[in-house]
Amino acid sequence: MARMKFYCDAERCIECNGCVTACKNENEVPWGVNRRRVVTIKDGEHGERSLSVACMHCSDAPCATVCPVDCFYTTDDGVVLHDKDICIGCGYCFYACPFGAPQFPEDGAFATRGKMDKCTFCAGGPLPDGSAEEYRKYGANRLAEGKLPLCAEMCATKALLAGDADVVSEIYRKRVILRGASVLDWGVSYQKATLRAPRGLSGKSSLKP
């Protein structure tokens, strides 16, 4: 059984916001809602890094435990989804989520919060796969078509990876070995590289001689 995860490689993300645009376009999300965002730290300074953030599809999702109407469920692929026919738009998932994934369109009393909307890992919702109603409420269901989320598919630098955790881990592991330092040494990973760039990558990597 697959366990779907996102991973954003901060060493590769160039803050192009292609993933944000791809997500908005593919899912036709409501106005004011952004399922994905790119956050840049130390912008314009030495050690600048960017991360693309959306729902992390947690194994033990805090949003699901605080929901007063219990509208969340985890699919067989490990994707955390919610039922908008059950959701009441209370905002508790937004308080509990560490990543700020849940979003709220303007609706309800005083037009402050409507039913929650968040990243679905392009897996639609509880309605029949590929139905018009599913698309209207939850956006695309690419997983049912055998495709991965469009944000990761569109990523120009392949910083944003999506897929089975085993596969994503393996890709990332290879990258770390090639870099010679883990992302834990943020800001110094290239300078501290102990391995030389592989022959095939010379001239293509950002390693300074």
């Binding site: 952004n34 790119v38 956050v39 300074e45 989520c97 560490p98 990543f99």
Partner: peptide, 17 residues
């Protein structure tokens, strides 16, 4: 030093522990 293109509440906050 933390910025994002996405306007909204807390969008520049990477994590809320």
């Amino acid at each position: 030093p933390v910025r994002t293109q996405v306007q909204g509440v807390d969008t520049t906050r990477l994590i809320n522990a």
